[in-house]
Simulated assay, not measured.
Amino acid sequence: MVSRIAVAALVRDGLVLLVHRHPSRENYPDCWDLAGGHVESGELPRDAVRRECLEELGVHVYDPVPIPMTTSNPQLDMHAFVITRWDGEPVNTEPDEHDDLRWFRPSELPNLKLADPGTLPTILAALQVASR
């Protein structure tokens, strides 16, 4: 069964926000990833990413811009969004899911253990889109 996933690349001052997945997570433990999660039944991916940002980061996001994302897992239907406007300061409101969150420069991303290394081009593209 394919899982629909919506993820957010929050970008500010040329930096992208990533969350560190808790080492006890069943899927993709102990690695960095974009914030987000499952799209619920009847929910649009754009609405899911808004909900996930509120649940996981405590921020209300505006104007999510979709960008293409590929993943090496054929069981995931990924929907990625660049977000440059939000209310509040992102914090880790889901400590059971994530044990850290941090802003990264593009040059730091290739050295990170990402949930799916194949998403690196998407994250870098998000930084490019946000800088326009």
Rank of each mutant, 00 (worst) to 15 (best):
G88Q: 07
L44D: 10
I5D: 11
R51I: 09
P66K: 12
C31L: 07
G88I: 05
V11N: 06
P117S: 14
E26S: 11
P110G: 03
D13K: 14
A6Y: 05
Y28R: 12
A80N: 08
S107R: 08
M69T: 14
V91F: 09
G58W: 08
W103V: 03
G14A: 11
M69S: 10
G37D: 09
P90C: 04
M1P: 14
A9H: 03
L34R: 05
G58R: 05
V49I: 12
G88M: 03
P45F: 01
Y62C: 09
A80E: 15
A125V: 02
V61A: 08
I5P: 11
A48V: 02
Q75V: 03
S3W: 13
N27E: 09
N111Q: 12
V129P: 04
Q75N: 15
E52P: 01
A126Q: 11
S72R: 06
T122S: 15
T70N: 13
P45L: 11
I83T: 00
T93L: 10
G37C: 12
W103P: 01
C53F: 02
A125T: 14
C31A: 15
A130C: 10
P64L: 13
L17E: 03
S72A: 14
L18Q: 00
L124D: 02
C53A: 08
A130T: 12
K113E: 06
V82R: 08
P64D: 07
V82F: 03
T71N: 11
H22M: 04
I123Y: 01
A35Q: 02
N73G: 03
R25Y: 00
R46D: 13
V61M: 10
Q75Y: 13
L120M: 06
D77L: 14
H79Y: 11
N92C: 07
G42K: 14
A115T: 01
R46L: 11
P29I: 10
P110I: 06
E108V: 00
A6V: 11
G88Y: 03
V49W: 05
A35P: 02
H60I: 10
L114V: 07
D87E: 11
I83W: 02
R12L: 07
A48G: 13
E56F: 04
Q128N: 08
D99M: 09
N92G: 03
P66H: 09
W32D: 09
A80I: 01
G36P: 11
V39S: 10
E43Y: 10
V7D: 14
V59M: 06
A8F: 06
D100R: 07
V59C: 04
T122D: 08
R51L: 13
M78G: 14
V59K: 02
N73M: 02
T84D: 01
S24C: 01
F104V: 05
L18D: 01
R51W: 12
A115D: 04
Q128H: 11
P29Q: 09
M78L: 15
L18C: 03
L76P: 00
P121G: 09
T84N: 04
P95K: 02
N27P: 00
I67D: 06
P23C: 06
V65C: 14
A48Q: 10
L10E: 02
V59R: 00
V16S: 14
A126S: 15
I67E: 05
L34P: 13
G14W: 02
M69C: 15
E89C: 08
S131V: 01
I83H: 01
L101T: 03
P121L: 06
C53R: 06
L54C: 04
V82H: 12
L114H: 06
L44Q: 11
T122V: 13
